[in-house]
Design a protein around this nucleic acid. Structure first.
Lengths: 139, 139
DNA sequence: CTAATTGCAAAAGCTTTGCAGCGCA
DNA sequence: TGCGCTGCAAAGCTTTTGCAATTAG
């Protein structure tokens, strides 16, 4: 349970209630991809009263520290997920909003090839497939 | 020159000055990926005075009609590009903002494979590589 | 003529900033 | 104790909406 505190300290951030709460939420939440507003609402429902500006500030600090990663899927605002060691790409169901993660070596290698062919030095990449998930196809 | 009018009519949209101007801009602009604000500024500089709300409305109509495609790259707001027949992916320089387009069969095929493995029926996808372009590496 | 379209102004979201006070180390 | 962090309120930005006036077909 003190693991969050470790991570925070390692990132050079003081261990404060809002930060711990946000980190715990990101770890325990069923939905692994949350917007600032999502975090706010989830914490409110959990009885934790953290101000919205604080949440945005903390998420930015977490991102700078490499604790979380931010994405811009089709909706024009950012969602955050915990930064796990293993990189992965995303598949978003446009009907129910579900997000699945996957990793494919062929694609990863091909991306490098393409980049070097264009003289690009890749620092990051995102790949996102949009479609209808198996659940929604039956419904 | 009447090609724009054809496209608009085909999309079931009346041929009005703002719509024609926006379409022409998207066709002639050097930067092929423009936000609503970008379109507004470009038209202003060209001496065309189109209201911002009109631009957003028109872009949405164009998108619904399939005339343009919208993207959400790293910046948390949408940019639009003309919908060409040939699909392609994007490579964004995080330094100068330049956007290059590419298409790779290996990746396209692999995406289908991955999707079906997860039970997804793909309707669309976006892949975006972020990095430093050749120009910026030298500078 | 009639319905679609525009412009203006104002509202709506999400996100950021300034500042005074509180709290971790 | 001191600097960092939080909360509040207010500002910022892009995008959207309501409504009266205008225009294409």
């Amino acid at each position: 349970m003190a693991t969050e505190n470790q991570e925070l300290r390692k990132a050079g951030l003081k261990v404060t209630l809002p930060r711990v709460k946000i980190l715990q939420l990101l770890e325990s939440s069923e939905n692994k991809h949350l917007s600032g507003k999502d975090v706010y609402k989830a914490l409110l429902e959990a009885g934790e009263d953290v101000a919205l500006p604080t949440i945005y500030r903390v998420l930015h600090q977490f991102e700078a520290a490499g604790l979380v990663i931010s994405h811009n899927f089709e909706s024009a605002h950012s969602v955050y997920e915990l930064n796990s060691v293993d990189h992965h790409d995303h598949m978003v169901c446009t009907k129910c909003g579900r997000v699945e993660e996957f990793l494919d070596d062929v694609i990863e290698q091909q991306q490098e090839k393409i980049a070097s062919k264009h003289g690009f030095k890749i620092t990051d990449h995102s790949m996102c497939l949009y479609g209808i998930c198996s659940d929604c196809q039956q419904a």
